[in-house]
């Protein structure tokens, strides 16, 4: 693009390719910075607690450790190196996807995560899909329609204030113990997925629905909606084709909240329904004080969050050119 073309594009409100690339680049650096910070904090926590790291590894096996054995373990974990060396090694290993060794399970943290990840991804992705669909359905059907609007927003308020485990327990009591139509726990089959998925989806969906409805109601007051209506367009079509498209951007903004809710909720949901997954892994690491495992999972969670936010930012830059020129 020529300089004059670029100027014209800027005046017309269209961002240049350079501006878009610059914005994405800035976001990328910020994301890497957050991950570096998370890794550093994690290293500090590891180092502060490393004094008993070697001891806890051996003591976990019920032995009375000799000095040679402890030194051996310290060498294994690289605890005899100078601090900056350990830090650089740690960062280097992270870059290779190595999150460290579990004290308790004596396997790589990254391996433990990859073994459990599939189950959690299945749960989280299906829950996110259900949450978004429920939110869209509730918002489109009830925006600016009394009395449905107040009923739906009351239900949403209740669901969003209810702790995740309570929602799960209510679902269990109704569907597993009273109606006896769905299994209580386990990982096998799609039927076992339904209740955990709903447990995770309902509180997130409720918050999304509230945000989406208020956005939708704002859009429905815009002049272009009136124009669409005056052309004789049916209400449903106006809502879905014109208003929803604009309001959906708001859902994209909420992805950070959704990811946080899914990851935190997975710990509770997997515990309640006795499902395997990353959440279970986290809880068992916390109860056994497996610090490298806990911190590895936290760094992993930060990684997921940063990647999702980066994708959201890039999507945004591509759909909404105003963000770059502003």
């Amino acid at each position: 693009m020529t300089a004059r073309g670029a100027m014209a594009a800027r005046l017309a409100g269209h961002p240049t390719a350079v501006a878009v690339a610059k914005r994405i680049g800035v976001r990328l650096i910020a994301g890497v910075g957050v991950l570096w910070g998370a890794a550093t904090l994690s290293f500090i926590a590891l180092h502060v607690t490393a004094g008993d790291a070697a001891l806890s590894t051996v003591a976990g096996q019920g032995a009375n450790p000799t000095k040679e054995l402890l030194d051996q373990v310290r060498r294994d974990f690289g605890l005899d190196q100078p601090l900056y060396r350990q830090y650089l090694d740690y960062l280097g290993r992270l870059l290779h996807g190595d999150l460290g060794q579990s004290y308790q399970q004596r396997i790589a943290v990254s391996r433990a995560i990859t073994e459990q990840l599939g189950q959690t991804v299945q749960l989280a992705v299906s829950a996110a899909a259900v949450a978004v669909l429920l939110a869209i359905g509730a918002a489109v059907l009830t925006a600016r329609r009394r009395p449905w609007r107040s009923i739906a927003s009351g239900v949403e308020l209740t669901l969003s204030a209810t702790p995740t485990f309570v929602i799960g327990i209510v679902l269990l009591i109704v569907f597993s113990f009273t109606l006896k139509v769905l299994p209580v726990s386990g990982n096998d089959g799609p039927r076992a997925l339904i209740l955990p998925m709903l447990t995770l989806a309902l509180p997130i969906g409720a918050v999304l629905a509230q945000v989406l409805r208020s956005e939708l109601e704002e859009v429905l007051e815009q002049p272009f909606i009136l124009t669409a209506r005056s052309r004789g367009m049916r209400d449903t079509v106006v809502r879905v084709r014109h208003a929803l498209r604009h309001a959906l951007v708001q859902i994209v903004t909420m992805s950070g909240f959704v990811v946080g809710g899914l990851l935190g909720g997975a710990v509770i949901t997997e515990t309640l329904f006795v499902r395997q997954g990353v959440g279970q892994l986290m809880l068992s690491a916390v109860t056994t004080k497996d610090i490298p495992m806990v911190l590895g999972l936290v760094v992993f969670a930060a990684f997921v969050y940063v990647v999702v936010n980066l994708l959201v930012d890039i999507t945004y830059t591509l759909i909404d050119p105003r963000l770059v020129t502003r």
């Binding site: 910075g33 946080g260 809710g261 935190g264 986290m282 690491a285 916390v286 969670a301 969050y305």
Partner: peptide
């Protein structure tokens, strides 16, 4: 603010679990 950005990148429940582990 950068420190806060870092801490906010981890879900609240996981942060609470880290504190409890330590």
């Amino acid at each position: 603010m950068r420190l806060i950005d870092v801490v906010l990148s981890v879900p609240e429940l996981l942060l609470a679990l880290v504190v409890i582990t330590l």
